[in-house]
């Protein structure tokens, strides 16, 4: 079992009068090959949960295993863990600091004391993976790039450590629609090089399209882990949690309600187009 979380609790401001529970008895398993979406409203504990995975937040009570690494002891091999679990924060471009793109991307690999040739190789590979041209961008300052490019460089900075698990906190926040699609395509490509990917998102279209499992958090509790189709079919559940459905699902459901033979649990564009086409030709033939 790659990542295993059992009975995880977390309380902010422990032992003070401001104590607030952020996580409440969360048990979750992340399997190899998973692209796990984590959804829930602001303050539901998503960020706290994922920051446990690379020990940025330490366990107060509960158990977490990443492969065979136990995250409970006070002293663990942080470098090993953090190169194993790569974490891309919200607006990662705000963490860029070096004079050149190359140096910034090399920051992580240098910290884990890799040999020089290995670093060079990984940096080139990572910059390529995020869809940037290595030779033309490596000596430029990250601060003179466009917003989208900066985000790619920041993403490369994490990938260059070759994480086995990639954790993303709203990777498409603040991007225009095209930028969103581009970044998600990159994430999908990168996912192929990792054991599993965990992604926080508020965008249900993305979650439906890319994730194979979705963990729903609500007020610090894990409401359940669902397959996308299963989740977006259960309208009552979504309503009670105030979660939107993906645009395609909403459209399919609308058509279904108006008497067209379209499956209301459709979650991607191709399926919807196929269903509408079938229905159109079906009606025409009659």
């Amino acid at each position: 079992m790659p990542i295993k979380i059992e009975h995880l609790n977390y309380v902010y401001n422990q032992k003070t009068s401001f104590a607030t529970a952020a996580l409440n008895d969360i048990s979750l398993e992340i399997r190899e090959g998973d692209f796990l979406g984590v959804i829930g409203h602001t303050g539901s504990g998503k960020s706290t949960l994922i920051s446990h995975l690379n020990a940025l937040t330490r366990i107060q009570s509960g158990v977490i295993f990443v492969d065979d690494m136990d995250l409970r002891p006070k002293k663990i091999d942080f470098k090993k863990l953090r190169s194993k679990v790569g974490m891309v924060f919200q607006y990662p471009e705000y963490q860029l600091f070096a004079e050149t793109v190359y140096k910034d991307v090399a920051f992580g690999p240098e910290n884990i004391k890799l040999p020089e040739e290995e670093i060079a190789k990984r940096v080139e590979e990572a910059i390529g993976l995020v869809g940037l041209d290595f030779s033309s961008i490596k000596d430029r300052s990250p601060f003179e790039l466009s917003g989208g490019q900066m985000r790619r460089v920041a993403l490369a900075g994490v990938i260059a450590m070759k994480p086995e698990y990639l954790v993303l906190d709203e990777p498409t926040a603040g991007l225009d629609p095209r930028g969103k699609t581009e970044i998600m395509q990159l994430v999908k490509n990168i996912a192929a090089t990792c054991k599993s990917v965990i992604m926080i998102s508020h965008n249900m279209d993305e979650v439906a399209e890319y994730c194979n499992r979705i963990a729903v958090l609500s007020q610090g509790k894990l409401y359940g882990v669902y397959e996308p189709r299963e989740l977006f079919r259960s309208r009552e559940l979504l309503k009670s949690l105030k979660i939107d459905v993906p645009a395609v699902t909403a459209l399919a459901a609308g058509l279904n309600e108006r008497g067209f033979n379209v499956d209301p649990s459709i979650i991607n564009e191709e399926e919807l187009i196929e269903a509408v086409r079938a229905e159109y030709f079906g009606r025409k033939a009659q």
Partner: peptide
């Protein structure tokens, strides 16, 4: 936030 992000890169 920035410190966490750099820690995540093994700083």
């Amino acid at each position: 936030k920035i410190q966490s992000a750099q820690k995540a890169r093994c700083a």
